[in-house]
Design a protein around this nucleic acid. Structure first.
Lengths: 326, 326
DNA sequence: CTGTTAGCGCCTTCAT
DNA sequence: ATGAAGGCGCTAACAG
């Protein structure tokens, strides 16, 4: 591997000069600049970024934490992040955490070790104490998921309001038997959506019915189980609000199998507006988040903090309900 | 930020000793080891990985290139890669290339700049000359997709055989009107699957029919267009083999909408065994690749090359057809 | 068992 | 416009 020294020797200038042409410093005579460029080409020289990072203590890299890659939802959020990152010459890398605390911690340790300039997390298996400590010293932000009791800013939708709106959507159609599919987590986006669901019911003076609440793990399979549960009830719900498209579709499939007419006998609303919600038959009504904007915004705030140390704050963007066949 | 020097001063030992305890060198007295550990804790010291990398010229990081995140197929391949990487203390990071040559090139430049020890690409927008040049000097491998005229090893299934088998599967059922949905690319996995399709037909002495071949871009929407195309034909195909589940499902949806009975009047086979192929109604027959094994194997070979400079070779793993309702 | 020292490759004053 | 030299934080001989 050729180094800056090799280049400098090759064309008889100092390493400082080579460094100048690499970094586009104006103070280089055109003729020597050309000479250096030729040498670089000749020797196939590529600057060693690690060395540069060490010297400048900057990597221009942001690590994005994703629980898993199979969640369709992330794709456009990422595009938003990349677009913003690019504007200031940053590059993003993604780490898959599988929602595993150890892996997440390793990623944050990578940040501490100066491997990245900042991290955006869409995954949250870590405790608030650990995270708060990091936040004091490093640029980090949460996106569309967050951890309770944390001062770390979060960019996403107002999940409680989204849950409220989805439920209200069915209440306004005159339904009173409205079911909910969520998770048993006590905090986070799922819990907030549940809060919204309950608030909408209570605002409409509809009593909560334990039988109409089912907890799963976001997956299609959990949705199927939910579907079976609702089928077993003496009175089926008229409408179901699920905090994920996958669970909504799982439930829907189970109901269809049992002869229930979706969109007539039972209405279903999912969450995230994933591709499958659009192409499934019947297509799924769902809550849509402004994915690109979420990604762009979180990256914008993060980069600002990196570059100018600016303060960050939680921002809640607006969702909307996409009404489809279900 | 505390450095190794701070720690060494703090507890009155040399930086070498601190380095030893960090790197678990046995030659440290237990008492001093403990003293150093305490100092590290006290000072919140985290070793600067960049400095270490510069010194050792190793990062223990592998970059994985993905065209996009929304392809369900990648998920398990990644798990396989991670499992193998972990065995030797490597970590993976993912870059989304959007099949954009510029972005891909940047990723390989990152490799040249010593940001990573190696790269595995599942995306292939670059020309063979550029790639061959890199391959001579750096550890890189292709996985489930590849570039023509390249000496870079590839780990995946035998796509031609897979195409052959899927087609033969329908021929064996007595069908002669078998359609194909592919891409217009002249090389790569899609082209090989097409080759297999054609070979199976010719082996069975079934003449090719241009009307039964449709080219799309892997997407659900392209599948819908394909479906419309087949519907417009005087004689509908009896079976359809698509090189992606998404296109298969798009076509299927269009046919169902027009009253065609899938699995009776028309049979459809996709590719990749994605989750949606399993949960769609009707469920989709598809070609399944050994995803975990593909990921594990490619990472295994890559790490071997990194660590011992061993030679790498193309490996073709075996697929299978998952028969479902369609 | 521990300390000293010489770089890894680069950028950045400070001279000239 | 260019060069010399110091140092970023760490590891790895080499001494002792």
């Amino acid at each position: 591997m050729a180094t800056i020294k090799d280049v400098s020797k090759f064309c008889g200038v100092s390493v400082a000069t080579v460094s100048r042409v690499i970094n586009r410093d104006a103070n280089v005579r055109e003729s020597t600049r050309r000479k250096v460029l030729e040498a670089i080409d000749e020797l196939h020289y590529v600057p060693n970024a690690i060395a540069k990072n060490l010297r400048t203590d900057k990597t221009k890299r942001i690590l994005v934490l994703l629980a898993g890659i199979s969640n369709q939802f992330y794709s456009k959020v990422l595009v938003g992040m990349e677009r913003r990152a690019e504007e200031d010459g940053y590059r993003t890398a993604i780490a898959i955490t599988h929602n595993n605390a150890d892996i997440e911690r390793q990623c944050f340790e990578n940040l501490k070790m100066h491997f990245y300039d900042g991290v955006v997390s869409l995954s949250s298996a870590l405790d608030s104490e650990y995270l708060n400590d990091i936040y004091d010293h490093f640029p980090i932000a949460f996106c569309s998921e967050y951890v309770e009791n944390t001062k770390i800013p979060y960019i996403g939708v107002d999940n409680e309001k989204a849950g409220y709106d989805a439920t209200k959507f069915y209440i306004d159609q005159g339904f009173t038997k409205i079911a909910f599919i969520g998770t048993k987590l006590k905090y986070g986006s799922a819990a907030e959506r549940e809060l919204g669901y309950k608030k909408a019911l209570s605002d409409a003076e509809i009593p909560e019915n334990k039988d109409y609440i089912f907890y799963g793990n976001y997956s299609f399979d959990a949705g199927e189980t939910a579907g079976r549960h609702f089928l077993s009830l003496p009175k089926m719900p008229q409408a179901i609000f699920s905090i994920s498209d996958a669970m909504a579709i799982g439930a829907m499939r189970e109901l269809i199998k049992n002869g229930i007419k979706i969109g007539k006998e039972v209405h279903i609303c999912g969450f995230d507006n994933t591709k499958i919600s659009e192409v499934y038959m019947p297509s799924l009504t769902t809550v849509s988040q402004p994915r690109f904007e979420i990604g762009y915004t979180v990256m914008d705030r993060l980069i600002r903090r990196i570059e100018t140390g600016g303060k960050m704050e939680t921002i809640k963007l607006t969702h909307k309900i996409i009404v489809r066949e279900s």
